[in-house]
Design a protein around this nucleic acid. Structure first.
Lengths: 125, 125
DNA sequence: ATTTGCTGTAAACCACGGTTTATAGTTCAT
DNA sequence: ATGAACTATAAACCGTGGTTTACAGCAAAT
């Protein structure tokens, strides 16, 4: 698989693939080189990148993901802490999202204090 | 109320308050000036900033929030579209979060393909 | 064989949400 | 009345997650 195909399958620009690679987010095994020096992506990179996409979409940083994927033996505790911290973060985020939906529904109905600060101008000193 | 008190109540650095103000995220009515030229914050700014915090925490951009709070009459349609889009975005995010929790639970148990790329090195061509 | 398009690299650039620095005036406690 | 702490401004700086540019080699179609 060449870069453009990965790009097409993932909906990611080739520049992003190279960016991820530069950041060492993509393990070496997923990428080798052709005689041309063109990158050859292993097909498994797709599943891997799907995971990356998911994690990035829920606010993992690239550095955190790298910590997670590298099995440098010592990092087990660190990794565990990271994952548990993230799970908690996600739970908190879920509650904020819930609150935000209510809030936004109010905004749609014009019921939020938020949307209408002007209306109370004269009550503010 | 002076900057430091708002800072304390909100858990935000004073520099962030000034940053928000510079970005015009804080409506003028919430801030006036003393004889010293010191900012005087209206107490209602706290509730306002709580809303800001919530929205930022769920990935609203500052520009989007500004769109939302400014009642420039014309923007009703735009605003509606923004809010509806965001509600949908939040719903999608909620699903990703759910998936991520499962994923992370797997990682904790060592069951994720993700965590163990090295183990399949020899199966990769 | 040349044009079009994909590949490569390194480095500059960008948007976003802030933070820090440098410099100066104000206030408050001692 | 002096120093510590708070306020002000403008501008530079930062981390994060990319994108764009400038240049060159390789490929595939005409």
């Amino acid at each position: 698989m060449k870069a453009s195909e990965v790009s097409r399958l993932m909906g990611l620009p080739v520049s992003t693939l190279r960016f991820y690679e530069r950041k060492q987010l993509i393990p070496e095994q997923y990428i080798s080189r052709d005689d041309n020096n063109y990158r050859v992506y292993h097909e498994d990179v797709i599943a891997f990148l799907e995971d990356i996409k998911t994690l990035l979409s829920v606010n993992f940083t690239i550095q955190e993901i790298i910590l997670l994927i590298n099995e440098n033996e010592n990092s087990y505790v660190e990794k565990n802490a990271l994952v548990k911290g993230k799970i908690q973060y996600i739970q908190e985020l879920e509650e904020k999202l819930k609150a935000s939906k209510t809030f936004l529904a109010d905004v749609l109905e014009g019921n939020a204090r938020f949307q209408t600060p002007c209306k109370s101008v004269d009550t503010i000193k």
